[in-house]
Amino acid sequence: MHDDLKQFLRESRNTIAFTGAGISTLSGIRDFRGKNGVYLQPWHGRQVEEILSLECFYEDPSLFYQWAKEFIYRLDDFHPAAVHRVLAKLEARGMLSSVYTQNIDLLHQKAGSRNVYELHGSPAHHHCLRCRKEFSYKEIAPKVLADELPRCSCGGVIKPDIVFYGENLDESLLNQAFKEMGKADLLLVLGSSLTVQPAASLPLATHYGGGKIVIVNAQPTPLDRYAAARYSDLQEVFGDLESWLENQ
């Protein structure tokens, strides 16, 4: 099974993974645009994109934290699945250079991946909007779970360092991603619908750089026509890869 993908992995001298919310559905975390996606169902009458907008956060940060209580601040309840485990094993064996992720669930790090770049930011860090003091996830999560609006001792509201709608992605990180993917022999696009720009355009850097793209995603993506191999079942593909690695 998936012999072409295994061959690509063996031949590649520089493999990069680009991951989206689909890989974490295997861990029990709902994705955003799949058939049971978070974005498809309004929350208390508000669209999730609105709740995740910077304008809405400034207007009523408690609304975000009420929503995020279930979706962001219970990460200790979730554990890495097959994709996270395999990527960590590939990196440990020198077969994967890095992971660029759209996810904010910290599961790559929990699985043991070291070179993880979070394009949409991370809830691992928070900061006060008034004095810029920094706080960790472990400091903030208990407050959110207790229905408390996180505030700094200076009185300022605390915001997670995730990229809200209306905020720009880290330009230096985005430039780094384009540069690195442009040099990749192989790019694994995993569990991403490739619809959120500008991150969704990143795989084209590999295509134009002469590298191969492999896409594994349940739904079609706009870049499927560029894929050297295309699969739909993440669990099947990475369950097979996990067995393959154990027998190497």
Rank of each mutant, 00 (worst) to 15 (best):
H120D: 04
Y231C: 04
P222H: 09
A17I: 12
W244P: 02
K212Y: 09
K159P: 01
A146F: 12
E246D: 11
P80D: 00
R130S: 13
C152G: 05
I140K: 00
M1Y: 10
C154L: 11
S53G: 11
V189A: 13
P198H: 12
E55V: 10
R114I: 14
A205G: 11
F178P: 01
R85K: 15
H44N: 15
E171V: 15
R93E: 11
L223P: 02
H120Y: 14
L5G: 01
Y100P: 01
M1C: 07
Y39H: 10
V86T: 06
F18S: 00
I140G: 00
A92R: 14
P203F: 04
Q41T: 15
V216G: 02
A229E: 13
S27N: 03
G28Y: 04
V163P: 00
D224C: 06
M1K: 11
Q219P: 02
P150W: 01
P142R: 05
W67C: 07
K89W: 03
Y58N: 03
L63K: 03
E50H: 12
G239A: 05
L173E: 06
Q66E: 15
I213H: 03
G112S: 09
L40H: 15
S193M: 04
A124Y: 03
K35G: 07
A146I: 08
L188C: 08
E246Q: 09
L187W: 02
V99T: 04
Q41N: 13
G37R: 02
A124V: 06
D60P: 00
D240K: 03
D4Y: 14
D185Y: 02
F71T: 11
